[in-house]
Computed example of a mutant assay.
Amino acid sequence: MCRQILAQIQQPSLEAELDEVLLPDEPVLMRLGWRNVRSARMRIVRLDAQRAAQWAQWQRGTQDERDQAIAWLEELPATRTAEWPLDGWQDWRQHATEVAIEPLPAGKYLLLVQAAHAWGPQQATFVQEVQVSAIAWVKWRHPYQRDELYVLHRKHGYPLSDARLEVWSAKWQQRKWSRQQLEHTLNPDKYGAIAMPELDRRSKRYTFRFIRGADTLETTYSGLMWDQEWGRTATATRQALILLDRPIYRPGQLVHFKIIALERTPDNRPRILPDEEVQVTLQDANWQEVGTLHLRTNEYGSAAGFFVLPEGKLTGMWALHTDLGDSRQSFPVEAYKRPRFETSLEAPAAAFRLGDEVRLTGTARAYAGYPITGAQVVW
């Protein structure tokens, strides 16, 4: 057991944090974290289509195949290399710093960071796929029409009307994915907007490639988080905000409340509901109905009322429930007593041993400021 704990303490670790997409021809900072490592080496390898396919195949394989991929990366010619000495490698603690990476041209790369004193596939290793591109995209969900993509410059934000989007798809056949095929080629308008066609999400896997000259940005369907909800109906949702006058109540007290009736439009904008009838129900800790009020909102969409908490009921989390959007607000009901005074004891001036007689001095004072007299002290 002790050997296992010692091995965990002495285990080297190395990690790095870098944006998945970087701007071309601009330096960038990378966060580097380590423990029990004297120095770290970095290799950045450019990925062409063949290397990217080989890397993806190894990533889906076994641990031995992934170790083989690390050795394969070490043999490829590197676009950038660096080595950094690291401090605090003998204190068994986690450390972190930021290191600079030289500018990279547009393309797709693999970042490999390893402990220099343990250069090998079984040692502390970090690998990340990085894209360098000036292309960026944003999605706008239209409430009534098809969603749109906007292709923009990653640094300056202006639309890239001269870019194009290639939609590649692979189909699940015979327990494996088929080779990707080009399904659509789409061009943005002068505002950089692209209206997406309908996609078969159930049986196909999609890859989106934004291309502008020699610059390419690639993302998967899951990375795009695209919702193909063509022909969405314009539906609105209703809800009630329930405000209470206290955070906690005692049995027998009044629960004053105020509700604000709202309706959210399909584009997620709130709108008040004046002259709306709302039913408010008081529920106990067992979700049993205790009382009901029927209210009507005023011109500002609000209404107010109160309930009397009955005594003799089970304490716990009670709730107010409305029939407007099934809104609900919980609150605790406890038989607590509000403190009226406080006591304090002075620290003893000397040390005592077992069996000694100890005399303590203290005070009892009401929160209003006056001292408490004639009170019985029990210890």
Rank of each mutant, 00 (worst) to 15 (best):
M317R: 05
V167W: 07
Q10R: 08
A285S: 14
G213W: 09
P159D: 05
A335W: 11
P159M: 13
E15H: 06
S13H: 11
R271E: 04
L76A: 15
P197F: 09
A96W: 04
L217S: 08
L23K: 10
Q123V: 07
A240E: 09
Q228D: 14
P197A: 09
L73N: 08
R365H: 06
G107E: 15
N286I: 03
T235E: 13
E198D: 12
S13E: 14
S161M: 08
W226V: 07
A261P: 11
Q180S: 06
R141P: 09
T235P: 02
R3G: 04
H256Q: 06
L86V: 09
T79C: 08
G157P: 01
L320C: 11
L224F: 11
L111K: 06
L354M: 08
H184P: 07
L112Y: 11
Q94P: 00
A214W: 00
A375V: 14
E17V: 15
I242R: 01
A124W: 04
W92S: 13
W172I: 03
I260K: 14
W137N: 01
T125A: 15
D323W: 12
L345E: 13
Q131G: 08
Q131E: 07
R271P: 00
F208S: 00
E277F: 03
M42C: 10
D87H: 03
F306Y: 11
R340I: 12
L243A: 10
P85H: 08
E102K: 11
L293A: 03
I44H: 08
Q376N: 06
E357C: 10
E15T: 11
D189N: 15
V28G: 05
L293R: 01
A82G: 15
T219D: 00
F208K: 00
T265C: 00
Y206S: 07
E276T: 15
T81A: 00
E102S: 12
F352S: 14
R141Q: 09
E263G: 05
S169F: 05
R3T: 04
P348M: 14
V45N: 03
V278T: 10
L112K: 15
L295G: 03
F341G: 07
E277P: 01
A193G: 01
L282H: 10
D87I: 02
